[in-house]
Design a protein around this nucleic acid. Structure first.
Length: 119
RNA sequence: CGAGUUGAAAAGGCAAUCGCUGACGCUUUUUGCGUUUGAGGAAAGUCCGGGCUCCACAGGGCAGCGUGCUGGAUAACGUCCAGCGGGGGUGACCCUCGGGAAAGUGUCAUAGAAAAGGAAACCGCCAUCCUCGGAUGGUAAGGGUGGAAAGGUGCGGCAAGAGCGCACCAGCGGCAGGGUGACCUGUCGGCUUGAUAAACCCCACGCGGAGCAAGACCAAAUAGGAGAGGGCUGACGCGGCCCGCCGACCUCUCGGGUAGUGUCGCUUGAGCCGCAUGGCAACAUGCGGAUUAGAUAAAUGAUUGCCACCGAUUGCUUUUAUAGUUAAUCGGAACAGAACCCGGCUUAUUUUCAACUCGCAUG
RNA sequence: GGCGACAUAGCCAAGUGGUAAGGCCGGGGUCUGCAAAACCCCUAUUCCCCAGUUCGACUCUGGGUGUCGCCU
C-alpha cells in the first residue's frame, strides 16, 4: 500500500505566509471548518497550515483538533492539485466530532473549492 | 447497614493497519529505508523557594518588600516534621498571619450620659433643702444604648452603693520546681491596666536586580562611513536615592548593508527505587540497583478487534424485598499536554485500598 | 514560555474601612395645541466569585474565574 506522508517541510510555519493566505486567499466555510486557498508562485509548492483559536478550548482540545485536521489532510492530499497553499481553521462545532466526520467535511470543502485533481 | 475522618496507591492492557518527534546505522543532491525511543499527578495556576545566565563573580547606608508561638529538617522556603497555647466537633480528627496594645500615634460610624480619662450621672437609688417637683451632693448594684460599658459570681458591708472587706474564678506581677524552649505546675502579692497591628508603627530575622524571549556564537557584503552634541575636570552602566565600583566610549541625524523564526544553551538531576544504621518524625549517612521526552505553527494521533472495569435493560437462581450470577444488547471511562531544570504550595479531577470514629439493627 | 495590569448600573466611570459620587441612556412627571430644549423625580440586595481578619469589607489578606497589555 502506498503511504501518504506529511513531513515537516510540507507545513506552513512562517508568520508572513499565514498572513498572506488569510488576506489574499479565497475562503470556503462549512459547519466544522474554514478552508483558505492561495495560489503559490512556485508550481511544485504544496503546503498546508492548521489553526485552532483560543476560544475553542484548552491546549488538549486545540492540539486534538489540529491532529484531526492533519490526519484528514494526510489521507486526502493525493487528490489535491499542486501549486496551492492551504490553510485549515477549526470552528467551534468541531470540538465534539470524531475523525471520519472531520474527513468527510474536509472532502466536501475540497469539492466546493474545485481543487481536486481529475484522475 | 448508614454517616464520617485520616493516609496511601493507580491513572486500563494486548494486538493489527496508517502516521508523527528525537537518536543510531545504511544510502545519499534533496531524499529514502531499517532499528529504537517518546508527557503528568497535577505537565496547570505562576503563589513561594533555589540552581543556572547576564549585570562589580553583587559591596555599604537609606528607602522598600517579605516572614512572624517553640525546637528541629533542608540547598532554600511563606514548605515539611515534632511539640506548646487558643478554637471547633459526641468522636476519629480538624483549623489557627499565633511576636509587641505598659514606646508613641490613629480609628471605634449610628445609638448611648459616657467609647478610653483613672473619665463619665439619662432614668433609677440614697441624703439634704425647699416654692412638692425641682435644686445640690453621693452612688456604676439595677434599667436603657451598643459588637464592646471599666473584672465575674456569692456573702458581708453601707444612707444608698462601690474590691470597701472576704471566698472562688479570670487577668497581671514576683518567687520556687520541671522542660533546650514555647510553656506547664505550685505558691505569694497588691486588688485590675477595652478592641484594633490582614491601621501606621516597634522588635527580631531575611531579601541586590532581571529573567532561557536569560545569555553566547556564526557567513557574505561594503566599511572601524559622514555630520552634530556630550565625555578621563570620569561619559555609558550597576531596579529607586546617596556612596562606592568600573574605565572609553555614548546619544541623535543621514546613507548603506545584514542574520536565518539559524546554532549552542537543552537535558543526569540538592533526581528515583531497595536494604541497613541513627532519629518519635521530617530527614541524614552508607551500600547496591535502574537510569534514554527534548519539540519550536510545537512531536504520543486515527481506525478496528479481544480481554478487564463501571452502569442500565432482558434472562436465570432465591418465598419476597434484596442479593448473586453467567449470557446477550446498549452506553460510559475523569482532569488534562513537557517548553531551561529542581523542591514545595494551591487549584481541577476518576476510581481503589487500608486504618480509625460515630449511629442503628442483630447475635 | 516569562512579566504585569484590571474587573463597580445597559454604557463611561469616582470611591483607600462606617452602608456606593457624577455623566450618558432608559422610565415617569412639570411645561406645550403637539414636540424639542430646560427643570424635577426614579433606576446598584451578586461592587467578578469563594473563604478569612474586623463590631462592620467595594476597600485589608489568601485562593479562584475572566479580560487586556508588554518581552523574541
Amino acid at each position: 500500500m502506498k503511504k501518504f506522508r506529511l513531513r515537516k517541510y510540507q507545513i506552513i510555519k512562517k508568520k508572513n505566509i499565514f498572513q498572506r493566505v488569510y488576506k489574499e486567499g479565497r475562503s470556503f466555510v462549512s459547519r466544522y471548518l474554514v478552508l483558505y486557498v492561495f495560489k503559490s508562485e512556485k508550481e511544485a509548492e504544496k503546503k498546508v497550515g492548521f489553526a485552532a483559536g483560543k476560544k475553542l478550548g484548552n491546549a488538549v482540545t486545540r492540539n486534538r483538533l489540529k491532529r484531526l485536521m492533519r490526519e484528514s489532510y494526510r489521507r486526502q492530499s493525493r487528490l489535491i492539485k499542486d501549486g496551492l497553499l492551504l490553510l485549515l481553521v477549526a470552528r467551534k462545532a468541531s470540538v465534539e466530532i470524531k475523525e471520519p466526520v472531520m474527513e468527510k467535511s474536509f472532502v466536501a470543502l475540497l469539492r466546493k473549492a474545485k481543487i481536486i485533481k481529475n484522475v
